[in-house]
Design a protein around this nucleic acid. Structure first.
Length: 344
RNA sequence: GCCGAGGUAGCUCAGUGGUAGAGCGAAGGACUGAAAAUCCUUGCGUCGCCAGUUCGAUCCUGGCCCUCGGCA
């Protein structure tokens, strides 16, 4: 079995040797859903002449607007030769471009995001990454070296009939370190590791890692206490329904998007889908959507809590003040971030 | 009022004569090409109340209380 592995165009893998240049500075607004990232991003993009790079795994989809929390009123607009997503004049990259039946991967996001960072920087603007998909953001700021094997549908299909135990055995045989470095109880992880080993002939655990940073990030998140965040989530869900979320789903259906399309598996779309199909009453679907969103927010918090580089602020004003200091501290090639180095 | 079913973890329920489990929820955690995904860890609760039988009852017997059906 042979396969075509994408050529070595991985970001950061090469570069001008010896030409020491400051890394592009990138502001990253992270944190759990409903904490206020989108609004803060818009505000800071105005104040600091920035452009936004979406780091939300669901806002990438076309037609999925209300329920994914895209800024209301933004849309694809022709700018010169090509179309770009604009919200009140602020360009958003990696937003609203993917057909709902397609999937995107971390590696693709990482690559596109870096291209966007470079373009924005070249035009003298500040790149602002905004989103709650922790893995995406980390892949960018820590320059993840992701094993270069795209998903292999036929391989995954072929392995479907195997039990987890069998997959684990196969994996350990070709990649003994997987025993302690891969979550052997998680079928997805095991399958992926096996996939990489199979198509490269080398152990998965030897191929994952991180390269030298290619950007100079500044991470910021708005701290909300538990009750407040939960309340914000509830209100957001209600506001989305009020704003026509259900009609949005119906419309997407008339466009031929099946219930099991990748974008349809987003929180709320699946719960409200059950209501639309007549499987449960509306109030139940809304309640489930709130609960699922909260569970998601907790997972995000688990992710972001451990990243010591994040500056947690209490409100937008504090965020702006902090960013102002960071922006004006330019030059001075900042020392490499400690936190990223001792994470392996 | 009569007949039937039932009262066990926050919820839905399983179960046994030797003081009890599952799913969901909740809390915490992981996370390198599906990430709004996927996965891991954590369960003493008066087993409705009272009395009896028994070495021992949540499980058997009797009474009581409550819930849900059906009949009046």
């Amino acid at each position: 079995m042979s396969v075509r592995v994408r050529a070595g165009n991985r970001p950061g893998s090469r570069g001008p040797v010896g030409t020491k240049r400051a890394l592009p500075r990138v502001l990253c607004i992270v944190g759990p859903t409903s904490s206020g990232k989108t609004l803060l991003g818009i505000r800071l993009s105005r104040v600091f002449d920035g452009e936004i790079i979406n780091a939300d795994a669901r806002q990438v989809f076309q037609e999925f607007d209300i329920g994914t929390g895209k800024p209301i009123g933004g849309k694809r607009t022709a700018v010169g030769a090509r179309k770009m997503y604009l919200f009140e004049g602020v360009p958003h990259y990696l937003m609203d471009f993917l057909p709902p039946t397609k999937t995107m991967t971390v590696a693709e996001w990482q690559e596109k995001a870096l291209v966007a960072v470079k373009g924005i920087t070249k035009r003298g603007k500040l790149p602002i990454v905004v989103g709650g998909t922790g893995l995406y953001i980390q892949s960018l700021i820590d320059n993840y070296r992701i094993p270069q094997v795209p998903p292999q549908p036929q391989f995954r299909k072929a392995m479907e009939s195997k039990s987890l135990d069998e997959l684990v055995k196969l994996l350990i045989r070709v990649d003994p370190d997987a025993e302690r470095l891969v979550d052997l109880k998680n079928p997805r992880r095991v399958l992926r590791a096996l996939e990489v080993a199979t198509f490269t002939g080398k152990p998965f655990t030897k191929q994952k890692g991180a390269s030298k940073p290619v950007i100079d990030p500044f991470l910021i998140a708005i701290m909300r206490d538990r009750d407040e965040l939960r309340e914000r989530i509830n209100l957001a869900v209600e506001a989305y329904v009020e704003a026509g979320w259900i009609d949005e789903i119906r419309k997407v259906r008339t466009l031929g998007i099946p219930w099991d399309a990748p974008a349809m598996t987003s929180i709320g779309y699946r719960e409200l889908g059950a209501y639309i199909r007549g499987e449960c009453p509306l109030d139940e679907a809304v309640k489930k959507t709130k609960d699922a969103t909260w569970q998601y927010a907790k997972r995000q918090l688990t992710w972001f809590k451990r990243d010591q580089r994040i500056h947690w602020v209490k409100d937008e004003d504090e965020a702006e003040a902090l960013v102002k200091k960071w922006v004006s501290s330019k030059k001075k090639n900042p020392p490499p971030h400690k936190a990223s180095a001792d994470r392996a």
